[in-house]
Simulated assay, not measured.
Amino acid sequence: MMKFLKKKATIFLILGILSMLAGVVWAIVLASGASAPDKLAAVYIGFALVPVLLVIIVDRICVWKFGSTKVNKVQLYLVGIFMALFIIKLLAITFTI
């Protein structure tokens, strides 16, 4: 397992698997509820897992084609850009007049 994590694991794969697990568990909890809005929320969560699955598939294709080191470097840049944009937006919301 550690050999796989060192050689083949990427940022998006780990985050995707974690979000899929959390989404499936949360959807099951909501689907077993008594109210219709809970069941509808479970369906929405189920549909939200489709793009996550597509990202994982594209990630695996990129790792197969380019290698995990290069893919991790690109994904780290993307995560850094998203975090920077989030911080800029947070500052803009905080300091609005």
Results as ranks from 00 to 15, higher is better:
Met1Phe: 08
Lys3Ala: 08
Lys3Ser: 07
Phe4Pro: 04
Leu5Cys: 06
Lys6Phe: 07
Lys6Pro: 05
Lys6Leu: 13
Thr10Asn: 02
Thr10Tyr: 00
Phe12Ala: 01
Leu13Trp: 04
Leu15Glu: 05
Ile17Ala: 09
Ile17Val: 12
Leu18Phe: 13
Ser19Met: 06
Ser19Glu: 04
Ser19Asp: 02
Ser19His: 01
Leu21Val: 12
Gly23Asn: 11
Val24Met: 14
Val24Glu: 11
Trp26Cys: 11
Ala27Gln: 04
Ile28Glu: 08
Ile28Met: 15
Val29Gly: 02
Val29Ile: 13
Leu30Val: 01
Leu30Cys: 08
Ala31Arg: 02
Ser32Asn: 10
Gly33His: 04
Gly33Val: 02
Ala34Lys: 09
Ala36Cys: 02
Pro37Gly: 07
Asp38Trp: 04
Lys39Arg: 13
Lys39Cys: 02
Leu40Trp: 06
Ala41Tyr: 06
Ala41Leu: 11
Ala42Thr: 05
Val43Leu: 10
Tyr44Ser: 08
Tyr44Lys: 11
Tyr44Val: 05
Ile45Leu: 14
Gly46Ala: 06
Phe47Ile: 05
Phe47Trp: 07
Ala48Phe: 13
Ala48Ile: 03
Ala48Gln: 06
Val50Glu: 03
Val52Ala: 09
Val52Asp: 08
Val52Pro: 06
Val52Cys: 07
Ile56Lys: 00
Ile57Gln: 05
Ile57Gly: 04
Ile57Ser: 07
Val58Glu: 09
Ile61Pro: 01
Cys62His: 12
Cys62Ile: 03
Val63Leu: 11
Phe66His: 15
Phe66Glu: 13
Gly67Gln: 11
Ser68Ile: 01
Lys70Tyr: 10
Asn72Cys: 12
Val74Lys: 10
Gln75Phe: 00
Gln75Leu: 01
Tyr77His: 12
Leu78His: 02
Ile81Ala: 15
Ile81Pro: 05
Ile81Ser: 14
Met83Leu: 15
Met83Glu: 12
Ala84Pro: 03
Phe86Trp: 15
Ile88Val: 15
Leu90Gly: 15
Leu90Glu: 14
Leu90His: 13
Leu90Arg: 11
Ile93Glu: 10
Thr94Leu: 15
Thr94Ala: 14
Phe95Val: 09
Phe95Asn: 13
